[in-house]
């Protein structure tokens, strides 16, 4: 796995972890049929944290962060996001989802809408923002991800990296408190990975609470304040990036790191 160099200074002045809890997962279990995919997950995320989740394929990383906005349903335990417990109550679920932004490996932009419409849809329909205001916000975030000139194009006309940045902008338009990333760069070519990572770094610099499933260990080292290693549906090890990479405790982590960093 490549370790893309991050060749710029990171401004850490606003990267501060507060005492307030953003996400609280306690004793969470999940099964697919009889397959125990998540086992006794306990995780507390404070506001302003930047967490990278790593682990081998099939270890349940995606499933775990998808439980946080209930794209997957957990069967045991408790998940509280921004003070709201996720139960089968649809109102709570929609509320949590509108506070939590998510970026997917395959972008999941809406191909029948223009870039601008992709970005204004949820603010207009979920937040009931007036169209004009929603469009201004959308242009603001499109400028932030550096593609305002593509606003009237359709997703199919953009490169992968551009699409992923639109997807990030689309989430940001909802002014989320937490952002989830599920392998946002895995479907991209190296140059595009860099532009998407840059966008994510900027987001971190502004103090966004972020959970990222990614194989970009450079990002983990420089941006994350905590790295979580998962295997077989469990959290095996978590630590500050420095310690995690230089001094892994568990055998599984050591094996994983040796494979992924190619030592």
């Amino acid at each position: 796995m490549s370790e893309l160099a991050i060749d710029r200074e990171i401004d850490r002045s606003k990267m501060q972890v507060s005492d307030e809890v953003a996400i609280q997962i306690t004793n969470m279990n999940k099964w697919y049929g009889s397959f125990h995919v998540l086992r006794d997950i306990n995780l507390t995320v404070n506001k302003g944290e930047r967490i990278v989740i790593a682990g081998p394929s099939g270890s349940g990383k995606s499933t775990m962060i998808r439980c946080i906005n209930r794209l997957e349903e957990h069967q045991q335990g408790q998940i509280i996001v921004d003070g709201i417990e996720l139960t089968s109550d649809l109102k709570n679920i929609d509320k949590v989802r509108s506070e939590v932004g998510m970026c997917f490996q395959h972008f999941n932009l809406f191909p029948h809408l223009t870039i601008l419409e992709n970005c204004t849809l949820a603010p207009i329909w979920v937040r009931k923002t007036p169209r004009k205001e929603a469009e201004e916000t959308a242009m603001h975030f499109l400028e932030k991800v550096k593609i305002p000139e593509q606003a009237d194009k359709y997703p199919g006309q953009l490169s992968g990296g551009q699409q992923q940045r639109v997807a990030i902008a689309r989430s940001l338009c909802m002014k989320p408190k937490i952002m989830l990333f599920d392998e946002p760069t895995s479907a991209l070519d190296p140059e595009m990975i860099k532009e998407v990572l840059d966008t994510m770094i900027e987001l971190a610099e502004e103090g966004m609470t972020m959970l990222c499933v990614t194989h970009e260990m450079g990002f983990a080292r420089q941006v994350a304040n905590r790295v979580i290693f998962m295997d077989q549906g469990q959290i095996v090890e978590q630590n500050e990036p420095e310690e995690f990479f230089n001094n892994p405790k568990s055998e599984r982590t050591k094996l994983f790191l040796s494979q992924i960093l190619g030592h």
């Binding site: 932004g101 998510m102 395959h106 191909p111």
Partner: peptide, 27 residues
């Protein structure tokens, strides 16, 4: 329709009818 379209709509907080009307049905 790819499953991702449903997830994209869900992750933005659109409810069932909004997702159907704005995202799923048009496509």
């Amino acid at each position: 329709l790819p499953k991702g379209q449903y997830e994209g709509a869900d992750s933005l907080g659109l409810n069932y009818w909004q997702a159907q009307r704005l995202i799923i049905m048009p496509q």
